[in-house]
Design a binder for these strands. Sequence first.
DNA 1: ACCGGTGATCGTTTTTCCTGATCGCGGTGC
DNA 2: GCACCGCGATCAGGAAAAACGATCACCGGT
Lengths: 311, 311
Amino acid sequence: MSYPVKPSLRQLSALLAVIDTGSFRKAGVMLGMGQPALSAQVGALEEQLGVPLLDRRSHGVIPTAEGRAVAALAQEVMDAVQRIADRGRTGGPGAGKEGLREVVLRIGVSASVGPYLLPYASTILRQTAPGVQLLVREGTTDGLADGLREGLHDMILTQLPLRGPGLVSRPVFEEPILLMMSVDHPLATRESIRPAMLKGETILTLGSAFALTRQAERLVEDSGAVLSNGYEGSSMDALRMMCAVGPGIALAPLLYAVSEVRSDGRVVTRPLVGKRLSRTLALTWRKTQGTPPEASVLADALAVAAQQALR
Amino acid sequence: MSYPVKPSLRQLSALLAVIDTGSFRKAGVMLGMGQPALSAQVGALEEQLGVPLLDRRSHGVIPTAEGRAVAALAQEVMDAVQRIADRGRTGGPGAGKEGLREVVLRIGVSASVGPYLLPYASTILRQTAPGVQLLVREGTTDGLADGLREGLHDMILTQLPLRGPGLVSRPVFEEPILLMMSVDHPLATRESIRPAMLKGETILTLGSAFALTRQAERLVEDSGAVLSNGYEGSSMDALRMMCAVGPGIALAPLLYAVSEVRSDGRVVTRPLVGKRLSRTLALTWRKTQGTPPEASVLADALAVAAQQALR
DNA sequence: ACCGGTGATCGTTTTTCCTGATCGCGGTGC
DNA sequence: GCACCGCGATCAGGAAAAACGATCACCGGT
């Protein structure tokens, strides 16, 4: 007495074809199969539902009221299935670049680059890959890597290097890093700063989970400056405010400097000469996942967005 | 290079189960099948679409962006299929009487009874069988029978007898037929009329395709009245107007008389005594169709509606 | 370094499904 | 009135699909 059996696609398409053509034999030609096969499929469907769906007359068939209702639902099923089939590589209309499909890309991004780059990238993507919708989440470099492994993100945009195995990265661009300080700072009068001048200066950082902080630690070792870790901020703006009111110096990625520092008269940025100070931003995903089809267009969009942001 | 292959229900349910459980093996338990089978189904789906849908990791799987998108569409498919399965005889919620399903019943009805009975029946049906929606079309008795054979109607409500084979009827009720005439007519002074009084009187009729017309012809033969076929009307109201302004007599089914004649002071109805004058209204459908599940409730509703209309 | 758990793969068995021939039934033509 | 088509249902046989069971390679945790 148990009827948890679901109709099969064969049964549904058989029913639709028979009703459309009004004949089992014509429907057989349409579907490329014989009349007995269709008869069996429709018969099985009727038995499963326990209701006659077709009125078999001497010449041709006519759907019953139930048959019409079921056929309408069956058409919904076939449409939904077709929508999936259209996502194939020779996919239907609106295949942007190499047939990019409509997806929600969940990408994680460092807080020190996200707000200043992704709005541009998102705009570019809307044109080059209209089907791809970005869902952006910010985080620290290590946190993003963990989230990526756990499946929280599809890809992450962070600086290299990344901790742990199992990930594959594709560098997007290299971003110079400037020194940020108050306009009242003695070094602010210089156009550029050499490492030796930093001896004794205080270097401000964000929380220890930020990769930018590790870069600051390295700079401290090389230059004889001292590290201040009294305030663990979580945004570049917090760092900027500390620079504005105190004597400290902080590292500011170029994109952030262009976007925010220029409009704030209280702080200035100066390049460090004599020692390369920069970070490599890379798009990263799980090795097991394989290269996502969207990685290419996204990387391109990010590169273009960086150029736009610097203009 | 042809990819018109559609995903199968097995493939879609396999994908959904694997994503839901995050594991091929757990999904296998859920679907009551082995892990290799699921692996093959999902693998085939990925190959058909040409896109990886799952990120196979060492412990468990995670859907890719494509996988999430396809899974959402697959869920639509499964829901639509479930909607069909729920129409089974042990159907889902809202199974009124013996599990009547949501259908559009196309019923044809004689113009001489439809307007005066079906509004009541429709109201009753809304309570006894909420899922059944009536789509009523009027026509002549013969036209309705032809339309029924051609599949234009699911059932028809007409008077018996019906021309031609292949139909099966279920009588619903017997409706007395009255004589309708102007209040100025000499016979209007009588409470009841015997057939002999009709000698020489003019009997008005609708078009020849109406079964009521044939009944009038029979009355003419038996009583010595004369038939007037100068005006081929298509509604009972046309017949009433002719009675109101002229000397003719017409046949009026009881339901019509109760509904319309009482409120029109220009005409009256009188019973014919000494000779049975009535018609049998029956619900009819194609023999090949089998008795529709809704026939029973519909016939009951019509019978009740008739009593209501006569009250 | 071992061990437990994962998904992929292979050969075999089971199930499903399609074909081809045939039957009975109605309607159509001569 | 009778033979003739055309329709769908039915049956037996074979082909295709799908499942199983066993096994393998891989990775992470102990």
